[in-house]
């Protein structure tokens, strides 16, 4: 992100204030849960619990994300290289390992890194894994593995957009 132009600084401050309100609410309502702060202006994702910093993950890359306001995302699930296709009992692919990359291959893909799925639509993934048109954030494989170990379905991620996304 470049130097904030006129008015952007105020928007950044507004976004941070809203994020802090959401974080405080999270700390009060679910004190033992781990949660993420997806901080696009500073290009970092923070893993936190009870307001304590547990891990700082630099964002390596990201696709355009339409989201304009600071809001909570909810962690849905993760797909690991060892995950098995869930919904194809009795079919030919039953029990196959979940393919992580469809680009260039039909079924099999590189089985190296996990993917973390959030709702509204957002995927945190490593480089080299195709997610189609779904908005995604790229982290290092080490960070993804650590975040995947920390998060449980339902944990929240507080999303702070870029200032320019508000206008």
């Amino acid at each position: 992100m470049g130097t904030p132009v006129f008015g952007q600084n105020r928007i950044v401050l507004q976004n941070y204030r809203e994020a802090l309100v959401l974080e405080l609410d999270q700390v009060k309502t679910s004190p033992d849960d781990f949660y993420l702060i997806i901080d696009l202006p500073s290009k970092q994702i923070h893993l936190k619990s009870q307001g304590n910093m547990l891990r700082m993950c630099p964002i390596l890359n990201l696709s355009p994300i339409e989201e304009r306001h600071t809001q909570n995302y909810s962690f849905v699930n993760r797909i690991d290289p060892i995950s098995v296709e869930p919904g194809n009992a009795n079919l030919r692919l039953r029990g196959r390992l979940f393919p992580l990359d469809f680009s260039g291959r039909l079924i099999e893909g590189p089985r190296h890194h996990s993917r973390l799925y959030f709702t509204p639509n957002l995927v945190i993934r490593a480089d080299g894994i195709s997610t189609g048109t779904t908005p995604h954030i790229t982290l290092s494989p080490l960070d993804i593995k650590a975040l995947g170990s920390a998060l449980r379905p339902g944990n929240i991620a507080i999303f702070i957009p870029h200032a320019e996304a508000n206008h």
Binding site: R10, L13, Q14, Y16, R17, L20, V21, E23, L24, V27, K28, P31, Q50, G51, N52, L54, R55, L142, K145, A146, S149
Partner: peptide, 26 residues
């Protein structure tokens, strides 16, 4: 806004621990 952020950070700090351990089992 800056004043609000400072007071929210202070409120958050009251919930946070001074010293703690983080273990990355991965």
């Amino acid at each position: 806004l800056k004043t609000d952020i400072a007071s929210l950070r202070e409120a958050l700090k009251r919930h946070a621990a001074e010293t703690y351990i983080v273990i990355d089992t991965v």
